[in-house]
Design a binder for these strands. Sequence first.
DNA 1: ATCAAGTCTGAAACTTGTTCTAGATTAGCG
DNA 2: CGCTAATCTAGAACAAGTTTCAGACTTGAT
Lengths: 207, 207
Amino acid sequence: MPARASTSRPASPPLTARQEERRRRILHASARLAGRGGFDAVQMREVAESSQVALGTLYRYFPSKVHLLVATMQDQLERMHGTLRRRPPGGEAPAERVAQTLMRAFRALQREPQLADAMVRALTFADRSVSPEVDQVSRQTTAIILDAMGLEHPTDEQLSVVRVIEHTWHSALITWLSGRASIAQVRIDIETACRLIDLTDPAASGR
Amino acid sequence: MPARASTSRPASPPLTARQEERRRRILHASARLAGRGGFDAVQMREVAESSQVALGTLYRYFPSKVHLLVATMQDQLERMHGTLRRRPPGGEAPAERVAQTLMRAFRALQREPQLADAMVRALTFADRSVSPEVDQVSRQTTAIILDAMGLEHPTDEQLSVVRVIEHTWHSALITWLSGRASIAQVRIDIETACRLIDLTDPAASGR
DNA sequence: ATCAAGTCTGAAACTTGTTCTAGATTAGCG
DNA sequence: CGCTAATCTAGAACAAGTTTCAGACTTGAT
């Protein structure tokens, strides 16, 4: 099983150029198909054909559809973290900056709701066999939030707050994607969760 | 909560006794199979056979596996709400009571982790076609939390807090079920989310 | 009791994720 | 270059969710 080389992971065997190529083609096809049609539209046979790779090879690179979609999410998250870093949030208080950052991410997802659907559904449907990859996504999200808070060395308490915000983010996203909550409600819930930040740091606004 | 037909089904055509029977047999088989093996062990053919119903009939009652498992969750939630009501939480402050209630529910799920896995995975995997049923589960959960808070007429702000707690509850449950968080962490996160309650009602403990 | 409409059954068919196989290709190495 | 192990390909095969269909059974109204 190959592993990614780019931003993380101890890559078991390093990939040759052609393999890196294949991997990229696969992820690209996955994102493209997810973009139309969402989760269901990402059919393994089609991904294989579309990325010019045999079905068996696809499964060698990504041992299941969920693995594939979670990897797709990692990919997109990295891209997004880069973008967010380039234009940091402008708010005064940490809570404000975090909410702003998440809403910005949310707006990005709105532009590709089907892709978002595929990735998030895969993420929450993932079972234990995908734990390492899901964990990686979770760490990346945590990093984004900590970045927005401007924290380098969070306390345990702060980490728990970040986790609650993350839980809220994921779950609110799902309710929006399945049409059970409006965008306005998602914003309110995120802002509500972010108020926990002030609790851990009453002398907030400064940094 | 006011009267309302116990199970709160919209019941388009009322079911005959035999049909009610079948429905019950199906839900029972579903819960039994989920109890061993979790989500994957609930195989439609087996549910049908085990509840002595033809496959086509099973699909008439529950149009998909996810519908079936979400209905199973509704069923279990009702049971649990009843239990919780009989032994209300003993804490002073609302935040404390809510956290206590959720941890009690959590312990109940711990006793049947596979069943919990099946239900929660179905819930978060559900697409738009299951929205009404998922919404019903969500309302039931909200009712449980509001009960624990001792609130009858929550403000919008309080409803948002309840939603954040719900988001945290679901998402934390998933991370625990997929082995990415310990029980201790789930407790901490729930308690953290519950601190939001105090924010909306600084003069807390009284009614 | 009888008839029409609706429901249930059993079995086969279809779809899509996943696995398996045999042979072709490629990569690393002496 | 020539060998060996690993990788890749095409395609069949398998598994489980879902759909379909013809015929038997219930139900409700007359």
